[in-house]
Amino acid sequence: MTESTKRAPAAGRRVALLATCLVDLFRPTVAFAAVKLLEDAGCHVEVPVQTCCGQPAFNSGDRADARALAEQLIAAFEGCDYVVGPSGSCIGMLRHYPELFEAGSAWQVRAAALADKSYELLAFLVDVCGVEQVDAHYAGCVTYHDSCSGLRELGVKAQPRKLLASVSGLQLKEMEEAEICCGFGGTFCIKYPEISNRMVSDKCASIVASGADTLLAGDLGCLLNIAGKLKREGSTIRVRHVAEVLAGVADEPAIGDGE
């Protein structure tokens, strides 16, 4: 099968992939894993030119820049049937877009339309595409960190676990306090590094105590934070985005691991 026939839209869903700025810069593997999972679910994937969703501006109180970035992203992405991203945090930001604009304005209507069709990757695969299982193998014992925005703003909890259960060779061991924040918080980790460090230390202790050899999560911000801490502590626990394991592309070195 050639690339072009493989990507023919089976269910006719045109999905614009929001790779997210962190994945774009740090870990393209995650975006390619997302593309594979979406294509396997019968979607046609497009990648509009993109920079950032504007969340750092929004969460820093810079409404004008947040609005400008929202307009840029809406214009680039609104032509597709769905916007899907491998991040609860960035998709959560897209769901906030309508609050940036005056009620009833043309931009607010467009923002609301975009928010309505924006989905976190795993929620989209399970809840919209009806994916029940993936065709992947992973030899390891994993534990799953529930990233805050995905969990509490978008209700992502059961979907990753459902799909992970279908990965052959994979055993899931839940950690204590999987739902507690890892302390990343975007710019929080730079503004209040000592508090952030305490939070990520507690998170790493929960991960180590779980006995798992791999930590998975759905947001690269959390993963860079946790991997950075685990590696500084000398841990051998592998850290990966959940999409890498589900797509069966976990051959690249794990996050923060050497060659």
């Binding site: 790779a19 994945v23 774009d24 810069l25 740090f26 870990r27 393209p28 593997t29 975006a31 390619f32 990648v47 030119v49 993109q50 980790c189 730079i190 503004k191 590094p193 952030s196 460090n197 990520v200 860079l224 934070n225 991997a227 950075g228 801490k229 590696k231 500084r232 690249e252 996050i255 923060g256």
Partner: peptide, 23 residues
């Protein structure tokens, strides 16, 4: 410029190419 990060954590390095360039 990111001493708050690297005082307590390593920064995992990027894979080397951006996704958009590879795509």
């Amino acid at each position: 410029l990111a001493g708050g990060w690297s005082a307590w954590r390593d920064m995992p390095a990027p894979q080397g190419r951006t996704f958009q360039a590879l795509w």
